[in-house]
């Protein structure tokens, strides 16, 4: 029987942790960009894109992330597309993130007082000009703290991708646990890994919230 030193365990978990970080970053950046497009459709004045964006958001908010991943991973292979686990994981999390961010940001746009719309309309600004110069800059300020807060959720959600076989932190952990028969130690280390990633983020979100609140 092979024996594992603590360093062997940690070393492998670090590799898995790096993949978790990478997946979180990719999901957040790509999901943010997609989410912005969904947001603009959702709050725009054209009816069809607005309805589509709403359906998109409801679809991804109303179903478990796990099933979204299964659908991508197994569903697409039914059409003869061979989807590797990393691609299904990245794509699934991106879609999931975009729907949630679009909805969070919509709340921020709607939190900008109506008087701001009226005042800018009176100055003859068009809808686009109002958005660009008056509404979005204020909404962005409101959005910073909840967005960083949601990043914590994204990091933790990446754990679900272990089920379709993407070897991020959790999957790495379960493989090592099976090989070492030390699940308590290994899973404790895995949890610590998530904590190390998430704690600074949630701390940052909290301090941003305080700062931006005080500045208003």
């Amino acid at each position: 029987m092979m024996s594992f030193s603590l360093w062997d365990i940690v070393r492998n978990l670090l590799v898995g942790g790096a993949l978790t970080l990478l997946l979180s970053l990719a999901a957040f950046v790509l999901g943010g960009a997609t989410g912005l497009a969904v947001l603009l459709a959702r709050i725009g004045r054209r009816r069809a894109p607005r309805a589509l964006a709403r359906m998109y958001i409801e679809l991804f908010q109303g179903t478990p992330l796990l099933l979204q991943l299964f659908t991508l991973f197994f569903g697409l292979s039914l059409f003869g597309l061979d989807v590797p686990a990393w691609l299904a994981a990245g794509l699934g999390l991106t879609l999931f993130t975009s729907a949630f961010l679009a909805e969070i940001w919509r709340g921020c746009v709607e939190a900008v007082p109506r008087g701001q719309w009226e005042a800018s309309a009176c100055l003859a600004l068009t809808y686009r000009e109002q958005m660009r110069h008056v509404i979005l800059p204020q909404a962005m300020r409101l959005a910073v703290a909840p967005t960083v807060g949601f990043a914590v959720q994204v990091v933790k959600s990446t754990a679900v991708t272990s089920i379709i076989g993407f070897t991020e932190l959790t999957k790495t952990g379960s493989m090592i646990a099976n090989a070492t028969y030390q699940p308590f130690l290994v899973y404790s280390l895995v949890a610590l890994g998530y904590f190390v990633l998430c704690y600074p983020l949630s701390h940052y979100a909290k301090s941003l919230e305080r700062r931006l609140h005080a500045a208003r």
Partner: peptide, 26 residues
């Protein structure tokens, strides 16, 4: 032009930017 009960200045812009916004953009 219109002036409101609640002022409705743009809080993220300085006084000068509040006044120049519409002439510049529109």
């Amino acid at each position: 032009g219109m002036v409101f009960q609640q002022f409705n200045l743009f809080p993220h812009l300085s006084t000068g930017q509040n006044v120049t916004l519409a002439p510049r953009v529109v």
